[in-house]
Amino acid sequence: MILATSLAIAAMFAAGAYLMLKRDLIRLIAGMILIGNAANLFIMASGLRRGAAPILPLDEPTADPLVQAMVLTAIVISFATAALALALVYRVYISHYSVDLSRLSAAEEQQAERDEPMTEDLRESVRDDTDGEASPDGRHAREAAIR
C-alpha cells in the first residue's frame, strides 16, 4: 500500500509538473492544481493510522483525524491560490491579449532590451591616461613638452 500510494502521488506530481512546462497558461494552472492535489494526497497518506471515520463514539480503529484537518486546510489554500492564479491569467490576457507563454516571454525580452540600452559607457572610462601624449597633434605636442 505504501508503494502504491507513493506511486500514485508521484504520477500525479509528474502530470502536474509536465503541465507546468506547457506554454499555455491555463494548462500551467491545471498543472499547479494537480501538483497541489498530489501534495494533498501525500498529507492524507501520511496519517499515522488508517481506519474508519473519526467520529465518536468509536467502535473500531479510526483514521488519523489530524491529517484530515491538515488536508482540509491545504485543500482550501490551494483552491484559493488557484482561484487567484485564474484571475491573474485573465488580467494577463487583458494586458497581452494572449495566454501564450511564448508571447509573454517575447514581451519580457523586449522589456529587458529596453532596460539595457546598448550605450557602451564603459569605453569612455577605458581610455588610457597617457594625458595627451597620444593626441592627434602628437609630434608637435611632444616637441612642445620637451621644451
Binding site: I2, T5, A10, F13, A17
Partner: peptide
C-alpha cells in the same frame, strides 16, 4: 518529459521514504 520524470522521482522518493 525528462523534467516531469525527475520531478516525479523526487516526489516518489520523498513520499516513499517518509511513508
Amino acid at each position: 518529459a525528462i523534467v516531469a520524470v525527475v520531478a516525479a522521482g523526487m516526489a516518489f522518493f520523498v513520499a516513499w521514504g517518509a511513508l
